[in-house]
Design a binder for these strands. Structure first.
Lengths: 207, 207
DNA sequence: CCTACCGATCGGTAGG
DNA sequence: CCTACCGATCGGTAGG
């Protein structure tokens, strides 16, 4: 009896590797550890993936593909304006928070192999980011979005902020006397993003 | 003749280690590499620091001490309000941008050893962060700062954002058709921070 | 600050 | 999917 659900061996290896690489880093994880977590011998793992580096690449493209698959659903939420913004942001956070090590692995790879990650982002995410950017420019023309927003920098900022709050939140969580929970941290991020994007308007519909 | 300026050997080891740990990570760097960069033999390095882990600890406390030393100067900039905000932010960015690998090392350690980093932050930075938080609350009472700001979460957000833009900016830099430079990214961060903190006011002094 | 040496672990291969 | 084996490198010690 194995240590996790049966499934395909390749899939179980990928899951274990994703978890361990996220927790300890690629250099901090031996393929021996991954094999043990799956319940197989090391040469068997190498037989399936060829090399440790190839395993890393397959883990990463799998993760980016999931992301790419979820993004359209997230962006299709509703029409426009502040409420849509909130729902889009919260769906995006939910995606990362559901499996927190995803954000961790992304952050690690951005540090270790920035060029490779840039290429992966360009392939998997660029169209969607560009779509958001175009919407912001539309909003600026139509007058309900601040004109001083730098759309490219704004979108990149939100992505950085979301990834790092979830990936590195543990390190800053209890620094303060009244430490903000991840919940508070994320809802402040939503507030911050809205305040910086939309023009002030009266609280309720009247006027 | 060594590979870098003479100085104390210990100091040269610390500098090389800081640079290499930041670039390749702690697990991705051998003490052999550090020794070679300094121009000494590995056992000599071990003689000076006892162990690789002790070297890491001394690199990190050194870095946090520098940070702690600079922060009061940064915060003493001017009195209050949006202009002070801008100058404080820009001084903080300048500190990291001057030696970009500092932010990288901080980000790596937040991922690898969150508990240890939390303790270091608490010791070296907590008083200053708390000071900023108290100022935000003052501003809220006095009415020139938004009441919906969550001061703790806001401050933590800015720290996360600054560290990750500088540390991981390379990975997101050229994703878009019109990639924002680090400059644009940082000035958007200043704009975002101000828009989310202060109430809207007329552009020029007249009313 | 060095040379010489240590056991342990690394990723990967041979061969079945 | 396994056992048996490989050379290379790891952090650290002995002893001077």
């Amino acid at each position: 009896m194995g240590l996790s659900a049966p499934g395909q061996v390749r899939t179980r290896i990928l899951e274990a590797a994703e978890r361990l690489f996220a927790a300890q880093g690629y250099n901090g994880t031996s393929i021996q550890e991954v094999a043990e977590a799956v319940g197989i011998r090391r040469p068997t793992l190498v037989y399936h993936f060829g090399s440790k580096d190839q395993l890393r690449i397959e883990v990463l493209t799998g993760l980016l593909s999931q992301w790419q698959e979820q993004l359209p659903k997230v962006l299709a939420a509703s029409q426009s304006g502040p409420d849509r913004f909130r729902s889009v942001m919260e769906s995006a956070f939910a995606f990362f928070r559901a499996v927190p090590h995803r954000a961790r692995l992304i952050a690690r790879e951005m540090l270790d192999r920035p060029d490779e990650m840039r290429a992966l982002f360009a392939r998997h995410l660029e169209p969607y980011m560009q779509l958001v950017i175009d919407r912001i420019r539309d909003g600026q023309r139509e007058g309900h979005t601040r004109r001083d927003v730098d759309p490219e920098a704004y979108v990149v900022h939100l992505m950085h902020a979301a990834v790092s709050v979830i990936a590195m939140g543990d390190a800053t969580k209890h620094v303060l006397r009244d430490p903000p929970s991840v919940e508070r941290q994320l809802s402040e991020l939503v507030r911050l993003g809205k305040a910086a994007l939309f023009l002030d308007r009266p609280k309720s519909g009247g006027s």
